[in-house]
Amino acid sequence: MINYLVRRLLYAVPILIGVNLLTFWLFFMVNTPDDIARMHLGRQHQKHVSMAAIQQWKIAHGYDLPIFYNPSRNGIGHLTDTLFAEKSLAMFAMDFGAADDGSDIATEIRTRMGPSLMIAVPAFLLGLWTNLSLALMMVWFRTSWQDRLGVAAATMLMSISSLFFIIGGQYLFAREWCWVPVSGFEPGLDGWRFVLLPVLVSVLAGIGRGSRWYRSVFLEEIGKDYVRTARSKGLSEARILFVHVLRNGLIPVLTTTVAVIPLLFMGSLLTESFFGIPGLGAYVVEALQGEDFAVVRSMVFIGSLLYVLGLILTDIAYSVADPRVRLS
């Protein structure tokens, strides 16, 4: 298993380089360093953007090098004295450098990780529990009107944009009923008031998709031979469903949920924006809106890394959940 993990980690290196290369290429296909400088100076000052200022901005932010190949250098310098090498290779040592506004990206990531996790972890756990419970209930009442009602409700929830849940939740729970603040964030224990509504909204927004999918997984399981054997041995329907079917049905559930766990660090783009949560999701949105390539590049790198990590964790979880699976 250790050999397998080492091999998978080594596979991750070319993947990460490839992702970096692709991000780099896509970004600079659209914007030249001059464009980026002009955009930043223009947004800040709106006027007086001279060529000298653009050149100075590029020097100050390290954008004055050629992108992939530097003909003015010798030997390896052709490749290392380039924008790509300077900006991207350092990330493999977790050195993300500074954002275009001068703030330290690593510090920002450290600061913002906590708020993201404060929303994402409870929303993930509560959502998983809710979806599994609802799916099991629908399977319990399968083919009855309760099941059909559940499926219809889940389909309806799936059809509604998560933005509706956010705006509706803020209107009902915060503005009309005055239970919780509309938006905002406080670090520490006092922050629970701000976490409640985004978590509730995230769970609600995910119920439709999650419960329907888990229902189909459990329905597939309940038709299998071992279930018939269990029934013939006189096990109660509840025991069959909540012990045997649940345990076996969790294997496909694990494959998707474990892969998601590392990505919880990345936060949620929409939820964080509307609820004023200063997390990593909001950071990505701001960077995209502000065309801050340094931040976008770093977040894409971390996202890819976490995704690879999630896949490895899925493999491990799979082997733990299903003894027939061996990692080699």
Partner: peptide, 14 residues
């Protein structure tokens, strides 16, 4: 910090 108009407006009304 209020990035979106809707929560800002709701809080102003409150």
């Amino acid at each position: 910090r209020e990035k979106e108009v809707i929560p800002y407006w709701n809080k102003f009304l409150q």
